[in-house]
Design a protein around this nucleic acid. Structure first.
Length: 859
RNA sequence: GGGUGGUUAGCUCAGUGGUAGAGCGCCUCGUUUACACCGAGGAUGUCGGGGGUUCGAAACCCUCACCGCCCA
């Protein structure tokens, strides 16, 4: 089929093309990677969204960038694999199903563990993973044949394998520690599952003991005092030095507790004396270990007071706080109180309940040796972090990482593969092994991030020696928001290096920022400023959303997003559509060789030169993850250079019917432009390109290589001159109130290389190149356009125009004169800069002369 | 408290030593051989304050102020 037989719809409706194109791509298998290919691999594993999740705007950004890179590399001839999948999201998913049960008045305990887990699987089958369908709307070129889930059989084998390996090397241990406990979820949480917020609390000073044997302690948690085992002061504090080693009476429970000295106490905080509640505070726990302070547990797993033997037993912890303070007040023991007292309090990241530090026996990963390796891999350059400015954050965390609590008191997740014998024997059961008879398995499951830490290789088939692992590991790039650098990225580094014999899980970590609202504020349900990417896709098309997000994505930086900007991207898509329609109406073609460079008009040579430069610049920007700058570059090439100038300057040639060279050049420019834009705007480029070329698909088409022979500075300079004089004439017409469509007699007086394009310029400026007596003229440098306004020149407007130009020229002249008159400048500035300023002086001097003469003539 | 980013046009942001930029918004004109989701033209900034380095600073250094994020 030749190009003039194919047609584009007269208007661009994204919804008409997107779904059919995605189906075409899937049916053709373009996204399916081949482990046996001889091509160099390029691998990205998707940050697995929660099985409970829906596509939010952050996913849309993350995935747009990943798709850009994957499509780019696929076109560049790599064996590109973008591997999709989901995370089982332990607490989140269990919460969803428990909520459903609660609606029927049931708890998970009513079902029992086995049936509950079955129920979760049923839920997943029915309503989990909605995000996968939404990813298709976005156009993600993921390999669906490799879709993975962290609870899949193979990924579970990976979990068992690594658990056993870590345990055997002494890197997993069980210990009684203070951990973060959620009294609502009834499970332990790791440090990063705790979110610190500034809450309104209270700060009270309580007198322990009486008379000489008394000391005032400061606390925000009066209710825990019944669990105190000591009072601590700084060893050098003169106020308390004499009391160290003595005992005071603990009110309410009437127990004598020692006063101890510990460096951890800040003498400037409160009264300089703090209560030591070993079983209910992590700092106190540490001090207690050093000083043999007893652990007194006074709260149960629900955060309810228990075992104090006082009237407070049975009270909720917050209720108890009020009651305890009231009672102390009654006893005259409250020395001072401050309320509200704003301080940071930990909350469960899943349900927002205030976290309770709790003494409890849990499983931990000993991270020190793993974290050292993870830090070194980045330090020695084996893994790059982009942008590099974010590397210090990574180091700060990896170098100061606490041991990782990995057990969770949940039912949904990978059950801890530890079995206990009748005499407390401990056996870890690896893949294919079974526990000795009479042993019982630990009831807890592993932290969700334990399995996601294995994602870059468990999804490829590890621990089996799969073809995928051989071909696609290590992965090339990991694209994710900086907000999960610690949650996920650092942990993949830890486990990846450990499991894969020191081979890091990816070469480059590309970090992007968060999507914020149009005023740069964080999106949140409470603010009501959360946007739905699917609504934007419905309204403006996936390409528009993608382009907007990519265009806003500066490395590692947050971006604001406004609906207007998506509309702007939709306008860009429409522009491309209409430009292509126009081009095809005028015979643009991709068939046959490009005309010889020497035979081209300056207009054609110029656009090829700009195309070549744009290709180079844009490719380099994409390859260095500078998505915002890349989009900016291609946007201005397409809209400004191509649509506003090339097409306009070419209209005369197309109208004259003698434009074979331009038809071929234009076909080439569009062909290349669509290839370049395809990673960002896959749908519209596919539609336009296949229509233009008659070929099957752009998905697997070759990435353009800039032709250095097309760089033509002479044509660029010449077209630059044309643009200047055209703009000046337009400005003149505008100032004179001449309508854009009104034809007026005119003539172009300029050097021959400019006048060679007189007819193109005249067509564009609506000038009639006939004989006439000029009544006005517009000049720029050596170029002059004479016009006939039939004697109706608006002298006032023209004076204003010239005077404005004169003022600018005079200011520029002065700047140049000052510089050239500066001895320091002349002595020290680089020669090239001096030459430039001298040229500027010459140009402005000439401008001033010319404008002054024109103004004089106007009198 | 420790770390870290920011302050440039009305808004959101680019711009790492040589005449201040983009998108959106704003003003004027306009149914011109694609496109009003458009075209042409225009207005708008002592680049947070102060000091310093330099022939030259939005950019480099110091300092202050004010926002923000991460960690404790």
């Amino acid at each position: 089929m030749s190009s003039n037989q194919r047609e584009l719809a007269s208007s661009f409706v994204p919804g008409d093309i997107e779904a059919p194109l995605y189906k075409k791509w899937i049916d053709a298998g373009y996204f399916t990677a081949d482990a046996n290919s001889s091509k160099e691999p390029f691998t990205i594993v998707i940050p697995p969204p929660n099985v409970t999740g829906n596509l939010h705007i952050g996913h849309a950004l993350d995935q747009t960038l990943q798709d850009c890179l994957t499509r780019l590399k696929r076109m560049q001839g790599f064996e590109a694999l973008w591997l999709p999948g989901m995370d089982h999201a332990g607490i989140a998913t269990q919460n969803v199903v428990e909520k459903q049960l609660a609606a029927k008045g049931l708890s998970r305990h009513d079902l029992g563990r086995e049936d509950f887990v079955k129920k979760v699987w049923e839920w997943k089958a029915e309503s989990g993973g909605q995000i996968l369908g939404q990813m298709k709307r976005l156009g993600d070129s993921v390999d669906w044949s490799r879709e993975a889930f962290t609870m899949d059989e193979n990924l579970s084998q990976a979990v068992l394998t690594i658990f056993k390996k870590l345990f055997d090397q002494g890197l997993i241990y069980r210990a009684e520690r203070i951990i973060n406990w959620c009294p609502r979820c009834l499970t332990a949480l790791s440090d990063i599952e705790v979110e610190h917020q500034d809450d309104e609390g209270e700060f009270v000073q309580v007198r322990y003991g009486d008379g000489d044997a008394s000391i005032v302690v400061a606390t925000t948690r009066a209710e825990t005092m019944m669990g105190d085992g000591a009072v601590a002061v700084h060893p050098d504090d003169p106020r308390y030095k004499h009391m160290i080693g003595t005992e005071v009476l603990l009110p309410l429970v009437n127990r004598m507790i020692p006063i101890i000295a510990d460096e951890l106490v800040d003498p400037d905080f409160g009264t300089g004396a703090v209560k030591v509640t070993a079983a209910h505070d992590p700092n106190d726990f540490e001090m207690a270990m050093r000083h043999n302070v007893p652990f007194v547990v006074i709260m149960n797993e629900h955060g309810v007071m228990d075992g104090t033997g006082t009237e407070f037993d049975g009270m909720d912890r917050f209720e108890a706080r009020i009651a305890v303070v009231a009672k102390l007040k009654e006893m005259g023991r409250i020395v001072a109180e401050k309320r509200p007292y704003i301080h940071a309090v930990g909350h469960c990241s899943r349900c927002d309940t205030t976290v309770e530090p709790r003494l409890s026996k849990q499983w931990f990963v000993k991270v020190a040796p793993l974290a050292k390796a993870a830090g070194d891999a980045v330090r020695d350059g084996r893994v790059k972090i982009e942008p590099a400015e974010l590397a210090p954050r990574y180091f700060e965390w990896v170098d100061n990482m606490h041991d990782w609590c990995i057990s969770r008191q949940l039912w949904w997740g990978h059950r801890i593969p530890v079995w206990y014998g009748p005499n407390d024997e401990v056996v870890v059961v690896g893949p294919g092994e079974s526990a000795p008879a009479g042993y019982t398995q630990d009831p807890d499951v592993l932290d969700t991030w334990f399995s996601s830490a294995l994602w870059p290789f468990s999804t490829l088939g590890w621990p089996n020696e799969s073809a995928d692992v051989k071909k696609f590991y290590p992965t090339s790039v990991l694209v994710t928001g900086y907000d999960i650098l610690f949650f996920w990225v650092a942990r993949m580094m830890l486990f990846g290096l450990f499991a894969m014999d020191g081979v890091p899980p990816f070469h480059t970590i590309v970090l992007h920022g968060l999507v914020r609202d149009q005023f740069g504020k964080k999106m949140s349900k409470s603010r009501g400023n959360v946007v739905d990417p699917l609504e934007f896709i419905d309204k403006y098309g996936a390409d528009a959303l993608r382009f907007t997000l990519a265009r806003g994505s500066n490395p590692g930086k947050d971006q604001a997003l406004a609906e207007d900007w998506i509309a702007g991207s939709r306008n860009f898509a429409t522009k491309l559509w209409n430009a292509t329609r126009f081009a095809m109406m005028n015979g643009a073609t991709t068939e046959g060789p490009l005309p010889a460079q020497s035979s081209l008009s300056a207009i054609d040579a110029w656009i090829l030169s700009r195309l070549s430069e744009t290709t180079t610049e844009y490719t380099a920007l994409l390859e260095s993850y500078e998505f915002a700058r890349a989009c900016e570059t291609i946007y201005h090439f397409a809209w400004d250079d191509l649509c506003d100038w090339y097409l306009e300057l070419s209209k005369e040639a197309f109208a004259s019917g003698d434009a074979a060279a331009s038809q071929r050049v234009l076909g080439h420019v569009l062909d290349t432009l669509f290839r370049l834009l395809h990673p960002v705007m896959p749908f519209i480029t596919e539609a336009l390109w296949t229509t233009l070329t008659g070929k099957e698909t752009l998905v697997t088409a070759a990435w353009p290589i800039a032709d250095a022979a097309h760089i033509d500075k002479k044509s660029e300079t010449l077209i630059g001159e044309l643009q200047k004089i055209i703009t000046e004439v337009r400005r003149f017409r505008n100032d004179q109130g001449v309508k854009p469509s009104q034809k007026i007699p005119g003539r172009i007086i300029a050097p021959a290389d400019v006048t060679a394009y007189s007819s193109a310029m005249a067509f564009l400026l609506k000038l009639e190149l006939t004989d006439f007596t000029p009544s006005a003229s517009v000049e720029i440098g050596a170029m002059k356009v004479e016009l006939d306004l039939s004697g109706t020149v608006d002298v006032v407007a023209e004076r204003a125009r010239l005077e404005k130009d004169l003022a600018i020229a005079q200011k520029d002249l002065k700047t140049a004169e000052v510089k050239l008159g500066n001895e320091g400048f002349m002595a020290k500035a680089p020669a090239a800069v001096v030459v430039e300023i001298k040229e500027r002086l010459a140009v402005t001097t000439a401008d001033i002369e010319r404008i002054t003469a024109q103004l004089a003539a106007l009198k």
